[in-house]
Design a protein around this nucleic acid. Sequence first.
DNA 1: ATGAAAGCGCTAACAG
DNA 2: CTGTTAGCGCTTTCAT
Lengths: 342, 342
Amino acid sequence: MAHEKKITINDVALAAGVSTSTVSLVLSGKGRISSATGQRVNEAIEQLGFVRNRQAAALRGGQSGVIGLIVRDLAAPFYAELTAGLTEALEAQGRMVFLLHGGRQGEHLLHRLETLLNQGVDGIIIAGASGVDVGLCERAAQKGVPLLFASRASYLDEADTLRPDNMQAAQMLTEHLIRRGHQRIAWLGGKSSSLTRAERVGGYCATLLKYGLPFHSDWVVECDNSQKLAAEAIGALLRRNPTISAVICYNETIAMGAWFGLLRAGRQSGEGSVETFFEQQVALAAFADLPENALDDLPIVWAVTPAREMGYMLADRILQRIEKTETPLGQQIMSARLVRQK
Amino acid sequence: MAHEKKITINDVALAAGVSTSTVSLVLSGKGRISSATGQRVNEAIEQLGFVRNRQAAALRGGQSGVIGLIVRDLAAPFYAELTAGLTEALEAQGRMVFLLHGGRQGEHLLHRLETLLNQGVDGIIIAGASGVDVGLCERAAQKGVPLLFASRASYLDEADTLRPDNMQAAQMLTEHLIRRGHQRIAWLGGKSSSLTRAERVGGYCATLLKYGLPFHSDWVVECDNSQKLAAEAIGALLRRNPTISAVICYNETIAMGAWFGLLRAGRQSGEGSVETFFEQQVALAAFADLPENALDDLPIVWAVTPAREMGYMLADRILQRIEKTETPLGQQIMSARLVRQK
DNA sequence: ATGAAAGCGCTAACAG
DNA sequence: CTGTTAGCGCTTTCAT
């Protein structure tokens, strides 16, 4: 392999007949350089096809142009979208992303953070951490590196955080059903240990009460994340409480399962009237992470978390934190969007 | 912000009572270091919580420990899984991943490559590029940086490539149906311009012929990627050709749509017998990217592309190329797995 | 087996 | 406005 000779600012300086520091100044646009010199330097850069070596820059103390991203689970659509959005936005700003995957464990997290810190990243984003110890924030603060969290619920109170507005999403969904005339609205799916679910159920419950509608704790059904189980659960629920006219589902899987369950329940009865009842009378609403165009085929109302835009916002926010040294920390929330069948 | 002092190999050297070069040697395991010294150095490292600064190492000429990854579309499950697998495997080897997103355009690709090269990455993986010009490979070769492609079909003939075995997957699916007694097997979905589809249809067709079964070009139906359209298409197909007993679907969306279509077709007829016929007699098979556990609820046989394992393989392969300077280029294919309802 | 010294490419004082 | 200079943290000959 014929390793090509690298062109450095020295070569550029030589070609432009200036010193290296002048080139550096032009590159970073800092010093007050005469436009004539700037011109000449830029021409030389162009001609030689010079690209600044960020490693060296970072080593010396400048910015590396790199943001570290620790993602809990890339294979989950929510995080994939978020990562896509973040990467896109950051690249548009001429920056790059260091990707670390699987940020479950606290201990590992600290080590990962350390790794990123030592790579000289300009900022760090942790997506999907739950129960973060303050050590992380302190460590980053010590190093003077902005640290930002993105999560699905409000785990972190003292850190700079972006998260979806789960309550708002649930309120929106519930209110939509109520406006459509539903009064007896049940909840299906999620594990009660989930904080995200707690927030959503909270919004659902609050909205019911706000409209003076009944809230029955046995209309809130826990369910593992499986279509099959959801189908069974909704069948049982409706058999026990035939007056329920709408069900809010915790996510896409539950919603699909619920829909199958309605079909099946209608069919099992063997009676046309009941079949019609279930299919036409029970409305389905659900939360979703997927981009909207994937959802347009089922008669379900969705509250979609705009994961990609969360990525954009994260990019904005981290850049802000990097540029302006003293940006106040804070919680930022992202509203969901209502998506109905076309 | 109180920027903490960084611990460098100097600190380690001081603490261990050796010179910096000794520490460096221990770190890279190169020089012949006495086990006693090695011990002492490692203790010091441990105690001080030292983490080696890769940037400096890379700058000086060592390895950066970083692999560049350019992904076409992170939000697509296939690439998300692949990226997850790759990142996981690479991290396990103490390496990191530079993520660039959106590698559609050739021109941008070259620029992105240049960016990565200038970050001092040890290797580059491009996932999802189609129609790559040779310039990329040459450029990487000039710099002595291994370049690896991952794609969904065999676009690239001269490069080091990993891709799924689309023909094998289609053969497997078709053969499975034939073994189950199906003789009249149709194809639904995909656009005829897709190379992936071409390879799959090829496998399907070849297997039919191999078993002496009929291949009708009008049993191969193109279809946009929408559940609704797929449902309509399968209805029309079966109406035109009522003897078809199995349908192979191009992907998950098509398969779901086809399934709905079968349900609907059965229902529309209003006759129990026809309903039973469609539901019980028409077998559905399909290609899928999703991890297996998401697929267990529908009576569909899946050929799943093991995207995550492709990520692992990519990691292996790039590391191999990095370590052993002269690894022959080559095409590597990844077989699909058959997944049936439990 | 280990240490001394010379940079990698760049930036940031400080001079001029 | 621009040049000089001194490193950032690490690896790597070359001595010892």
